[in-house]
Design a protein around this nucleic acid. Structure first.
Lengths: 355, 355
DNA sequence: GCAGATACTGCAAACGTTTGTACGTCAGCC
DNA sequence: GGCTGACGTACAAACGTTTGCAGTATCTGC
């Protein structure tokens, strides 16, 4: 009608200094207000030196004033860089459809910190591996992330290798295995298992058990290390596959201790969580710790020092691990090639062993 | 140390599936292969009924065969819908630049589950509030998310209200306050604090303390509830502002107990984490629990049942809370209007009180 | 056999940026 | 004074989708 909204006359730069009377949603809008072209606005906001310093600051001030922020989707589409790292937690061998392991959650927290620091956003996905590479490719192939961080490999090492053959920027937390294609940051789980078992043996334990479900390769490797230590000492170690599901853990443990030849005096656990649960069950059974039974955890969660007695455990350098993962993924994105890093765990002796 | 592999050239993997001889990266590419137009391919992959069922399946098969996935950025740009929910954790009143509270982490885990279920992706941001709305608007205004979930309000209630006045789809976890504009899902913290204190009093405690930093509104409200209960019984409750930083908590607590008139016999804590730490410190000091001192936690983390003695605590329905938050944000995105939901907490009596 | 409905499909215009190239101006230099 | 280069800006072509609209067969009923 009469009142056309083609407000293209930019001669009247009179009163619109303070009031965002006209909505500015796009670069073009802001360009009109500033009396320059959209391209210049784009460069100005990106802080490029190509544009006159004075103009740049004027435009930035204008953007602030109008509360303008460039549309990220458009930006990402055009620049073919998302600034987003996908973090995926494979729910692999755990039945429970839920992210619950405090270790992974803690690692996630650290990753969030490191990624933010590095200027990346973090896109979180939980995935349920199904044998095909699809659960992973749904993320790598989405075009939504510049790279992928995998929190744990579960039992999907082959699948991951397969994906990595055509998708480079991927780093996993977990266990390094010879011949594996994908890059891994993790703890030397075999050494960890060994340290735990050796310590127990040195403290006089003879009837050993390993508590943990070996569906994931990390845990399996820990068992291997523990078993090696046991055998070196001429001892047997019983494997008890406790699963990491909050609700079931108590009953599982009770059943384990009720078994006929279950009078263990030294227990290596696959995680602090299991250790804490075991501690609790043993308390209820009236067993003295470390008098009757000694226990070693794995992870050294912040909580490990709060149990009573405080938990002897194998420490994984989780903050450091997150840092390394982020470093590696960044390098990978830059096109560099990288190698895996396995970090040695440390035995933290507290009071659930007789040291 | 690290073992690794330099597997740099990966171009020669042409032995895989049945003949992706021509690379298909875009809709147009696939359209060419299928002998249709790009638009049709788009519709076919979206499963629209507009395209012939047979054609649709042929195209989908082709897409699978060539491993084609539409570029999300382009899709999101065009359709103006991202399918992403931003989850932001304000690091507000905690000095420590790190996501560490297990409660928030657990809530995050549940949110991840619920959002995935609902078909949304989750973009995680940690933010450091700075008094201006900028830390939040950086996310709401980015055009990258369809909605925002806030894990805790910290002390930013006003700022959040301000943002909500022009950005609708936002739901916060936290404390509901009369007159507040933004939608909140959370626990009745005042009631929680009251339940805890009343229970202690009923169990014979007379020298009460509240352990927790009241920088965040949630905690302040819990203290208010506890104080109300104390006053109703004619008792005084001492506020000890313990901060939630892993490393410092021990020393803080020791200092608190070393204070001249610190012979508390009943402690309400602002979180299970503080309670667990206090339990530990008290153990070390040789105090009997619940004989000498009784303690009530807050949250009912899965770990609360594992302490020794098992922790009496005020339970927040965190899984339920996550579910409600996701429901509300979805409704908000659909354009509906919503109201806050405050859920009643439950007192879980275990063994750190004499019941 | 024909009008009109029906069922698909193609065309092309967005979506809002970024960025290579071209253009214009101005200073410095011989 | 013209040439060279530096500097700053405008122009327009992507980026890869989705989707309204128009077009073309095929079908239906009379």
């Amino acid at each position: 009608m009469g009142a056309g909204m083609e407000d293209s006359d930019l001669g009247n730069d009179d009163t619109d200094t303070s009031g965002p009377d006209v909505e500015v949603r796009t670069l073009a809008d802001l360009a009109r207000v500033a009396g320059v072209s959209a391209g210049t606005v784009s460069r100005a906001l990106a802080g490029k030196s190509l544009v006159n310093a004075e103009t740049r600051e004027r435009i930035q001030a204008l953007a602030r004033q109008y509360g303008f922020r460039p549309n990220q989707m458009a930006s990402k589409l055009r620049s073919r860089r998302t600034g987003v790292i996908g973090v995926v937690i494979p729910l692999g061998h755990e039945k429970r459809q839920q992210i619950s392991d405090p270790f992974f959650l803690t690692l996630l927290g650290h990753l969030a910190d490191q990624l933010t620091e590095a200027g990346y956003d973090l896109m979180l996905s939980r995935a349920i591996p199904d044998g095909t590479p699809d659960w992973l490719e749904r993320i790598t192939g989405s075009g939504m992330v510049d790279g992928v961080l995998l929190i744990g490999q579960s039992d999907q090492s082959e699948v991951i290798d397969q994906v990595v053959s055509h998708y480079r920027p991927l780093v996993a937390w977990g266990n390094h295995r010879e011949g594996q294609k994908h890059i891994v940051v993790g703890t030397d789980n075999e050494l960890g298992g060994r340290l735990a078992a050796e310590h127990l043996i040195a403290c006089g334990a003879r009837r050993l058990a390993f508590f943990g479900d070996t569906g994931g390769i990390e845990i399996a490797t820990r068992l291997r290390g523990a078993r090696a230590a046991a055998e070196a000492a001429g001892l047997h170690i019983t494997h008890v596959p406790i699963k990491l599901a909050d609700a079931e853990m108590g009953p599982q443990l009770e059943a384990a201790f009720a078994a006929p030849d279950a009078d263990y005096d030294g227990i290596v656990t696959a995680s602090d969580l299991i250790a804490m649960s075991a501690l609790h069950v043993l308390h209820e059974m009236g067993r003295k710790i470390p008098g009757d039974v000694q226990i070693v955890g794995f992870d050294d969660l912040p909580l490990a020092r709060l149990t009573s007695p405080p938990l002897t455990t194998v420490r994984q350098e989780i903050g450091q691990g997150a840092k390394v993962m982020v470093e590696k993924i960044r390098a990978l994105i830059e096109g560099e090639t990288r190698i895996s890093k396995v970090m040695p765990p440390t035995l933290i002796v507290r009071e659930t062993t007789r040291s």
